[in-house]
Write a protein that binds this DNA or RNA. Structure first.
Lengths: 351, 351
DNA sequence: TTGTAAGCGTTATCAC
DNA sequence: GTGATAACGCTTACAA
């Protein structure tokens, strides 16, 4: 109403551009400079109440929505958070990702997800791709990163949270728990329950699985029970079906096995079904302990012992750390969220 | 080596900008215009072999990587594909998403994922946010979209694939199967197996669940077996635990129930465990049929009948359609990928 | 507190 | 086939 540029009124200036209103339109309508609109939108407190009102009105009237892409180009920071996981179908990561999403609700951050397929090289490639999007932060539930990956991440200047483990020195921040300790505790529990010939079955054998195996081994050695013949592993990805097969294999080779620590709950469930099918009494003839404590463990028949891992909490906490960091607060470098043994019928011999 | 601009050599021109080489650096080194570099990168065939070589060399020498954000701003098209799902922890969507990722591997498209939490309004909000990123395409495994959502999507000009169902008229493209038919087929199977008092248990009761229930109802009515007392539902999200509870409820109210169609496999597994725990013979005393045919169904004891749904294929096909569409090919509007009954021990009364 | 000017790195447009 | 120029819509740097 006040100022009137030389152009008519329709703003559609020159060549390109869709029809959406831009910050310039808002500025014109509110009779301020574009930069003031920009400020009012991002730091309302740095703009006088008077102008703020005018600007808010103009924004509302025009239905203006900032263009995240232009914003990203100008500021060299996008509002996406990159999330790298080794698998999309593994429930474990689904839970983590849910934690991430839930904690991110309400904020304007978007999630871009990548699947590393348990490959350090694929992870390296994806980190490079993601970094080129100038993300606000990166959450990596990767495998043990390559040197190149570490370097890229460290030099990126963007906050990085590595999740799931506490076993390496953090590039930036770390949230997880000790898989070694988890494996050891599960095994100790079996020992404490009176089992002696305790087997281990594991699939895929990614680094985290290896660490759980190492924990198992330590516990067995400490109790003078270790016997390599009790270990059955395969590079094949884990599944319920595989759990049954591995158990059958293991029992074939070491028939005196009296308990089994399954590297994850899928395997444990498969092992349980296999026992049922072969009329092997659980927990009398064979004790079973899983890892992760998925929901079904507590309702299976018999209920299955497991190690409860803080998957959802890891995702949540990772985002919290990010948010604090982005708000320039000081945050812990390493957060150990621990785990918890959940003893149930499947390891309770004195039923 | 040839031309030498007036500037020294270090390109770091003016004020901002990180240290990464830009298209201008490549152009300078290759002694061509920036736009030619741009062309060489995107449409190699439109540039002479000679220049192409020079440019490729320069790119390699500089380690130039195009900036996706600048690209997006200039072209009004980003290389992200938005994916909207109602749940992140539901295995069903995990499989779909995996199909999407696998089919996308190798392409330069990135995925941005949103969780609608089974809410049409949240979906609407997310569609709006996603659209503001000028995505290359959108894949929506949403719930029944609101009018506003449909409108935004339709006007966006970006390819949209709605997945999971075939039951509404597509905004653009549709890939899925008929949940009504699936529910009906599962129920028919139970009827054909000799069961008469067939119950239904369902959780969350989102639109797709409702359609499966409608299919159940139709099958029961057609066989003159329908009895509303046989239906047990809850708005609570589905889980294995819930499956056991719902079954117990149902049997409490209608003790003569002789089979149960579980709206999904989690419920079916919970129901099976509940039967085991209560010494209810499956399939003799109670037949069980699930829906989706997750991996565990085939190895449970007894093995569980289910309806195999093409989850992975849906994700894959959705991306294929997108890719064809983006390549300006003509594509089908509706793709029905069907489903398949998998009869197993849990419904095989004549064991 | 507000504004001016310049630029972020790329591509569309149009001319040669 | 190649290039000059002007956007794309926003924010940083600096000045008033």
């Amino acid at each position: 109403m006040k100022k009137g540029e030389n152009e008519p009124e329709a703003r559609k200036s020159n060549r390109r551009g869709g029809g959406r209103p831009t910050i310039a339109d808002v500025a014109r309508l509110a009779d301020v400079a574009a930069i003031t609109v920009s400020r009012a939108l991002r730091h309302p407190s740095r703009v006088s109440a008077e102008l703020r009102t005018k600007i808010d009105d103009a924004v509302a009237q025009l239905g203006y929505v900032p263009d995240p892409i232009a914003r990203a180009l100008a500021s060299a920071r996008s509002d996406v958070v990159g999330v790298l996981v080794p698998s999309l179908t593994n429930v474990v990561f689904a839970d983590v990702v849910k934690g991430i999403y839930d904690q991110l609700r309400g904020s304007s951050l978007q999630i871009q997800m990548g699947n590393t397929h348990y490959s350090a090289l694929e992870e390296e490639r994806l980190v490079s791709v993601f970094l080129s999007q100038k993300p606000s932060a990166l959450i990596v539930a990767g495998i043990d990163p390559t040197t190149a990956t570490r370097k890229m991440l460290a030099n990126s200047g963007c906050p990085v949270v590595q999740i799931m483990e506490t076993s390496y020195d953090p590039i930036d921040m770390l949230v997880g728990f000790s898989h070694f300790d988890g494996g050891r505790e599960a095994t100790r529990h079996l020992i404490d329950s009176g089992y002696r010939r305790i087997g281990f079955i594991g699939a895929r054998m990614d680094p985290r699985t290896q660490r759980r195996l190492a924990g198992y081994r330590r516990a067995m050695e400490d109790a003078d029970l270790f016997d390599p013949a009790l270990i059955t592993t395969t590079p094949t990805p884990s599944s319920v079906t595989l759990g049954g097969q591995l158990l059958a294999d293991a029992l074939g080779r070491t028939p005196d096995m009296d308990a089994i620590f399954c590297n994850n709950d899928d395997l444990a469930l498969g092992a349980l079904f296999e026992c049922k099918r072969s009329s092997i009494q659980v927990p009398q003839r064979l004790g079973i302990c899983g890892f992760n404590d998925l929901e079904m463990m507590a309702v299976a028949f018999p209920t299955l012992s497991s190690i409860r891992t803080p998957r959802y909490a890891i995702g949540q906490r990772a985002v919290q750390l990010l948010q604090e960091r982005l708000a320039d607060k000081k945050v812990d470098t390493i957060t150990d969220l621990g785990f918890e043994l959940r003893p149930r019928e499947s390891t309770n011999r004195i039923v």
